[in-house]
Amino acid sequence: MDNGMTQAPLSVAGLGVEFSDFRAVRDVSFDVRHGESFGLVGESGSGKSTILRAIGGLAPISHGTVRFRGEPVRATRSRAFRRAVQMVFQDPYGSLHPRQTVERQLSEPIRILGLDDRMDRIRQAIEQVGLNASFLYRFPHQLSGGQRQRIAIARALLVQPEILLLDEPTSALDVSVQAEVLNLLMDLRETRGLTYLFVSHDLAVVGAMCERILVMRNGEAVELLTGDQMRSGRVSTDYARQLLRASEGYQPGITRREAG
């Protein structure tokens, strides 16, 4: 990757998001490089989903700019943007239509792209996320939580995007199924050169997926880490240290105030 020469497909500068008088995101800046997997981690409520939503045009940008291929995005996202950028929501109901069968939802992107071999593509997509054709005629509410999450991922991939905004894409999956999905994402990144903006509260997952990680707290960026720094625990802020420490697991008696 020749940084500097190629333009960041996605960049965020001084981003602020306000809801009435509540500031959910304050002055956040980062670039996502071509072919990179960029992680966002941090406390619940720190603004991670809001950043993805602001990029996707679903939350108001009150300050700063979001650039797509170097150009500031407009209030209504361009056709090129909508084609290239897909979002997998944290709440999988958000990504799926409640009254359409899985088959119909997976057919939609294929129809829009004007591709043939519809059934083969659908089968492949659903098997890649560890499910099978027996799920095709179900509605979202007839699936388990993790099955819904995987259908949402399969749908986003069928659109053949260049950039995926993934909000906790595997939080409802056990480690084995999660590994299948993460391996699939790694394969696609290598074969199709996809770029990911990856939100997760699980540091092990982010460590396995991402080259660079931005740690968020209270709507602000606290620290930008390389994957190496995170894995070896070489962090400079107390909060990042606390996160790493807590990821060692539940020990009765240790709470947030004491940890860190």
């Binding site: 997997s37 056990d174 480690v175 084995s176 999660q178 590994a179 299948e180 993460l182 391996n183 790694m186 540091l203 092990a204 997952v205 460590g207 396995a208 997926m209 991402c210 080259e211 994957g227 995170m230 894995r231 070896s232 790493l244 990821s247």
Partner: peptide, 21 residues
């Protein structure tokens, strides 16, 4: 038993494929 072998560790190398069941 398989699940216990799949647990990713925080020092997992990036891009390296994860074990599956």
């Amino acid at each position: 038993r398989g699940l216990m072998n799949c647990l990713p560790a925080i020092d997992h190398k990036p891009g390296q494929r994860l074990p599956v069941l």
